[in-house]
Computed example of a mutant assay.
Amino acid sequence: MDPRSEVLLRQPEHFNGRTLLAGLPADDLLTHFPDARGWTWHAGDDAYFQARFPGRVDFGTSAPAQPYDTAVLFLPKSRELTDYLLNVLAALVPHGTLYVVGEKRGGVERAAKQLTLLGTASKLDNARHCQLWKVSQPSATPVRLHERAECFELNVAGSTLQVTSLPGVFSHGRLDKGSALLLEHLDHLPSGPLLDFGCGAGVVGATLKQRYPESNIHMLDVDAFALESSRMTLTANRLEGHVFAGDGIAAAPIGLGAIISNPPFHQGVHTHYQASETLLREAAHHLRPGGELRIVANSFLKYPPLIEQHLGPCRILAERDGFRIYQAIRR
């Protein structure tokens, strides 16, 4: 059981009514609160919930529209996303109670300060290296997600790209150094469908469609806010692409001409390499013969031996600012 869920189970009397659990972890918390409903924006967690608690959890960027007495936010990493979600949840329970639960090292005390903007906040529990805060009858002005978007313009290989980024998306409102390097090295990709793995705000996928207009572009991410950002970026540039949710490379189509990625290795306050390492192990199954994997990664990550073991010889195309572009061709 996630420690944040354990904290809620120490105070069960507060969550017996119609409760919305936003960003809940993939555990058995819903078993203990039969009247609760979940909202997740993580595709992997959603797959778990649909198998374990079918029909009780909604996936996406919008909260399930039902009457609630109580709402609980499991603290996300992003401060901007926290601010947006707090306002959304407060608007759902104007006569009820809004709670925030999170790890101390994840910034829950910072989130408690954000909570004070909605009413008088008080700490209810402190256990399992977590804190639980609440505010009764929160006051908030309803907000729309698209109003929180950050837009910026890029010039890549002589083409202008309008990028739209939503709260919680990697490198929100700016181009990170790794992706900037990758955008400079997208020449001479094989023909066939192209996959932007971990598409985020859609910078790579949209650029690929500009560079290779005859290719079908697939854009995959585990996060619903990233997927919506990618859709908005495509729309802003009048581009077409297939944007879809999935927890890792297993969700991708087969027969790809190339997989291009700035693969993620952070999730929440913890570091996770599993999605990236699984990509390197399984990429060959999704590439056509002669298909190519081209990724950018921090130079300290020991990816080349894994790439060569499962795909083929690994070549370094470029290196700058602590990042490297790796290329490998399916044998």
Rank of each mutant, 00 (worst) to 15 (best):
V143K: 03
R110T: 15
K123M: 05
T116C: 04
E103P: 10
T164H: 03
D125P: 02
P142E: 00
E103G: 11
L115C: 09
A157G: 12
Y99P: 08
A121M: 05
R128T: 06
D125I: 01
T164P: 08
G106N: 03
E109D: 14
A111C: 04
L98N: 04
L117I: 08
T164D: 04
C151M: 08
K134Y: 00
L161A: 09
R105H: 15
A111N: 05
R110M: 13
V156A: 10
L115M: 06
L166G: 08
V93W: 01
N155C: 12
V93G: 06
G107H: 05
S122T: 10
A157C: 07
G96N: 09
V100I: 01
V163C: 08
L98F: 03
Q131D: 07
S122K: 02
G102I: 10
L117W: 02
A127G: 07
T141C: 05
H95N: 11
T160H: 13
Q114L: 15
L118K: 03
V101E: 00
L98T: 10
R148E: 12
K123F: 00
T97Y: 04
L118N: 05
D125E: 07
L161N: 14
K113N: 08
S136V: 14
S165A: 15
S139C: 11
E103M: 13
R148N: 13
K113I: 11
A149N: 06
P94E: 09
L124W: 02
V100P: 00
C130N: 03
R148K: 11
L166S: 09
Q162S: 15
L145K: 00
K113Q: 11
Q162F: 07
S139Y: 08
V156D: 10
K104S: 03
T164S: 10
V100E: 01
R148S: 12
E103S: 13
Q137G: 06
C151Q: 14
W133L: 02
R144C: 08
V135R: 01
T116D: 04
L115N: 12
A140Y: 00
R144N: 07
E147I: 03
E147F: 01
V156E: 10
T141Q: 09
K113F: 08
P142K: 00
A127M: 00
P138R: 01
P138Y: 01
A157H: 14
V93F: 02
S165I: 12
V156Q: 08
G102P: 09
Q114R: 15
E103V: 14
R105T: 12
A91S: 15
E153R: 14
P94T: 06
E153F: 11
R110D: 11
T97E: 10
Q131I: 05
H129T: 14
A157V: 09
L166K: 03
A149P: 07
T116V: 07
L92T: 12
V93Q: 02
D125N: 05
G158P: 06
K123D: 03
N126R: 14
Q131T: 10
E153K: 13
S136G: 06
K123Y: 01
